[in-house]
Design a binder for these strands. Structure first.
Lengths: 185, 185
DNA sequence: CGAGTTCCGCTACGCGTGTTTCGTAACGAG
DNA sequence: CTCGTTACGAAACACGCGTAGCGGAACTCG
């Protein structure tokens, strides 16, 4: 009963939030301005997303895209390609900062952590299937644990970007794949 | 020339900040309250640390301690011990949240990222020496790259805690060490 | 058409961060 | 001891986040 929500408002706000996020990053993102750009009252935004963090995560989820992996049939090449693709994105300072803020948001609000997880692990599950097929082809040992392998491939990437600050060049990505695969053949 | 700063103020504020950080974590940390507890004006705090982030990092740096690694002579045991020690700390939700916020602070202010890096990498360099000595003993292959090995050991830990959310039990730590060492022997 | 419910915008408020300005008191140099 | 410099404290301000209350308008149902 009663008046339904204007779904156009959700779309307008998310669109404005995406633009603002791209232009100024998380730090420069002001909820007031997102509302103003969407030509909507601030209170109306709060009626849909209970906090800035929630809105930012929702906006990020709609602009997060992963290029599909082109599978060549050679695990080494496929994994290297996946890693360099991830690395290329993380190298951008803006992306790096946004990722850090999103992770922090995910620890502040557990439900946001839950919402973000599928986004992060999307490429990860694709890579897991890559490994499964390589095992089926006999390219990798049958006892290879895809989850562990991927943690050892992707983990160091995020670790370097977020924590140690070491560079993540393509040479590093190749070295990761090489040493990891050597164990399972 | 002129009046010198009261160094007791620095100590009092840092002490109050540490206590507040332990009690309420980063989110519940209010600079006003830290100043009040130190019986100091807010402006005085800002004269020493230009932002909440700076104060928190400074306070964290003084309460970050790493238990020294007891070296048994068996690389596998030593590395497993180091990893489980790191994992034990990271498993605490409070620590997890603080680490996430500190990383975000490090991306907002590059100088804070620089200040934090030595803290994170302290255990890492200790582990690197562990590996160096193992190589010298002939326990590991001479071509083993300590930096790469450690990235593959520690990276997955942080990756799971901060991103994938997967559990980091001691079994996982053992598996990491096992598969990594198997490659270099 | 009328009644009830819900949405939307507006205003006001409390809180925390960070800046600025001012007056006062402490210290060092001559 | 006096003077110039600087630290400290107090107050006011701007800004962004988040909450609450109100009035008007839109929509649904009987």
């Amino acid at each position: 009963m009663a008046r339904p929500r204007d779904t156009a408002v959700d779309a307008k706000v998310l669109e404005a939030a995406r633009a603002l996020l791209r232009e100024r990053g998380y730090a420069g993102f002001a909820l007031d301005e997102a509302a103003a750009r969407a030509e909507v009252a601030r209170t109306t935004v709060y009626r849909r997303w209970p906090s800035k963090d929630h809105l930012v995560v929702a906006a990020f989820a709609t602009m997060f895209e992963t290029a599909p992996i082109r599978e060549t049939g050679d695990v080494r090449a496929d994994l290297t390609g996946t890693l360099t693709a991830i690395a290329a994105g993380l190298r951008l300072p803006a992306t790096r900062a946004l990722v850090a803020e999103l992770i922090a948001a995910g620890t502040r609000h557990p439900e946001l952590g839950d919402a973000l997880r599928p986004l992060w692990t999307q490429r990860r599950t694709a890579a897991a299937e890559l490994i499964d097929r390589a095992v089926a082809r006999g390219e990798l040992a049958a006892d290879a644990d895809p989850a562990l392998i991927i943690d050892q491939l992707v983990g160091p990437l995020y670790y370097r970007v977020l924590i140690s600050g070491d560079p993540i060049d393509d040479c590093f990505a190749r070295a990761l794949v090489d040493t990891t695969l050597a164990r399972h053949r």
